[in-house]
């Protein structure tokens, strides 16, 4: 059995924390190891528990001594997911940043978490496994039907960056590099049917 992915959640609001804990623990393989209502004990908690992910309120994050924080998370291989409020926080995101918007719907938040953790797992084990994950099959289906990265991102409620990284993984796993090649693969494996590929 694989060990569970460990999360720390840091936000001032009790309700937000509870909401996140419930959402995350819906996944059998995830577990929240600590809740924090301030940023002060965060360093200690990371050092002690070495979690896989810290979901942190953006304002907490901004008040941290970043240099120290980054070296600590790097050492513990902890990934940061920023918790934002798109209505209030006026932020520009790097496409490489992970974040969750507290205004998002449940399914969007779940998808977002799925994507983030899937990417993480992939980078963890350099898998020789050439079987596509369900998420990758979703992406492949749309690519095979001729959608652009942007369109796929909109359809699946994920960022373009995530689509691109899925595509890279698909190509690497299958060793197929062109869109028409992927389309044929998708037909051979009944991910799409011939009729829909023509439209």
């Amino acid at each position: 059995m694989m060990s569970k992915l460990k999360f720390i959640i840091a936000d001032k609001s009790f309700l937000v924390r509870r909401g996140l804990v419930c959402t995350i623990e819906e996944f059998e393989s995830f577990e929240v190891v600590r809740e924090l209502d301030n940023e002060k004990s965060l360093f200690k908690a990371i050092a002690k528990l070495s979690p896989d992910f810290v979901i942190i309120n953006l304002n907490f994050y901004k008040s941290l001594r970043l240099k120290e924080f980054n070296s600590l998370t790097k050492k513990n291989k902890t990934k940061i997911i920023k918790l934002i409020d798109k209505n209030k926080d006026d932020v520009f995101f790097n496409e490489t940043d992970y974040y969750i918007d507290i205004n998002d719907s449940k399914s969007n938040i779940i998808n977002q978490i799925k994507d983030i953790t899937e990417q993480f797992l992939k980078s963890e084990k350099t898998s020789k496994n050439s079987i596509l994950s369900n998420r990758e099959k979703d992406v492949l289906r749309h690519i095979a039907l001729g959608l652009t990265n942007k369109e796929v991102a909109d359809k699946l409620f994920i960022s373009i960056h995530t689509v691109v990284s899925h595509r890279k993984n698909i190509t690497k796993k299958l060793d197929i590099h062109t869109v028409s090649g992927l389309t044929i693969y998708a037909i051979l494996n009944k991910i799409i049917d011939i009729e829909s590929s023509k439209s």
Binding site: L174, D175, I176, H177, T178, S180, G181, I184, Y185, L188, N189
Partner: peptide, 16 residues
């Protein structure tokens, strides 16, 4: 060469 590579793989690995 990309398409050629793909075609090879489709024939070797993926065509049942």
């Amino acid at each position: 060469e990309e398409k050629l590579l793909d075609l090879k793989n489709l024939i070797i690995k993926y065509l049942p």
